[in-house]
Design a protein around this nucleic acid. Structure first.
Lengths: 213, 213
DNA sequence: GTCTATAAGGTGATAGAC
DNA sequence: GTCTATCACCTTATAGAC
């Protein structure tokens, strides 16, 4: 699935990649077309050869970025899923919005965008949730996991780095992984004891940071 | 705790109230000082008699709004807390950001704001979480609830009104209330069966919409 | 396709009249 | 305290040269 090293991304792909990173870092609405294009090494005038409007860029961005996030959770074992969750709720992901999931950064922008953007978003998010539901057991178990992870990263980014942020990330990670381990129709486990540690030492896999660079 | 009907809010309070509603609806960074002041029936020039900068307004806004949200969860029974959670995760709250909690709307703005705003936010959020921890049992149980609720409203607002939005809100409500009912150090309950209904008929209290206006 | 230049309008912030 | 007028700058989008 990797491009050969010789592959040169087309201009449109390069714009989407660079503008996507900038939009996630600084906000889409607050970042001008000029800055978005400069990130791709181009000028504002060239923008409209690729997109009819700024809103159309947001739509393309949301689609592309959600596919990327979906790919990170397309795993074939529970252990791999737990590792992905750990990476999502890691300090690295919180500190590097550029390379991270679009949901914490762009959802509020999508909420104020036009219908085209919103349905692109709805389709992309539905695929993420349905894929997660395959491992979690049901959509009703998958939605709370997604909401929790997105909410945690959103809050953590607004908090200064420190103890509160760490407690937030750790307790949400424990809770999500515990919910995942629930055998189905049962109940969620140890939400109380877990100070500095992992969810439990049952799966001591390495945590990458969420982004794939 | 209600003001006497005769009470006229001071200008500053009126600005905070009206600007707060507008900022939550349209976004803080994307809404100009002019529009913020017009909402309070004033012009942009008068703004700087009340605040040294737009960023200082955001700080005051965050403080005031978080206190309001905290008050909504300052309840004296589990039933009342469950009702407040139901209101938070209601379609009404999703559809009326103006009157709603600042966390889903302003957190991403705070993440890009200066240190003053961020520590004001940190203090306000800490109080919300600690208050909730008194009923939930521990901070480690309270954080996931807050993250889940904030994430759910954030995602729901970006989704078009429809089935996915409803499934999201319903399953998150069930999950949060189930986690709350956990006797402590135990595990979370029925995440699976609950199609159209409430968390369970144990507490059939009326759901107000989140806002208190 | 990409550039520069330009359109019309919005931005945060300040000065001075009342 | 509030107004109007103004500052320099940034916004989305378009036109025309290359």
């Amino acid at each position: 699935m990797r491009y050969p090293a010789s592959h040169k991304t087309t201009t449109r792909e390069r714009i989407l990649d660079e503008a996507g990173q900038l939009a996630k870092e600084r906000g889409f609405a607050t970042t001008g077309v000029d800055a978005l294009m400069a990130a791709a090494g181009l000028t504002a005038g060239a923008f409209y050869a690729h997109f009819a409007s700024k809103s159309e860029l947001l739509s393309a961005l949301v689609e592309r970025e959600l596919k990327r996030s979906q790919r990170m959770f397309a795993v074939d074992s529970d252990a791999a899923l737990e590792a992905a969750i750990g990476a999502y709720l890691s300090p690295q992901h919180v500190e590097r919005p550029r390379k991270g999931c679009p949901l914490p950064t762009l959802s509020s922008e999508v909420a104020r965008a036009d219908d085209t953007v919103r349905s692109t978003y709805a389709r992309g998010l539905a695929e993420v949730v349905q894929q997660l539901a395959q491992r979690a057991g049901s959509e009703e178990k998958a939605w709370p996991m997604v909401a929790q992870a997105v909410g945690a990263v959103t809050l953590a980014r607004a908090l200064p780095a420190g103890r509160a942020r760490k407690t937030l990330l750790d307790s949400v990670r424990d809770q999500v992984i515990a919910a995942l381990r629930q055998p189905e129709g049962e109940t969620a486990p140890p939400t109380s004891p877990s100070r500095p540690g992992r969810a439990s030492p049952r799966k001591p896999s390495r945590l990458r940071s969420h982004p794939n660079s």
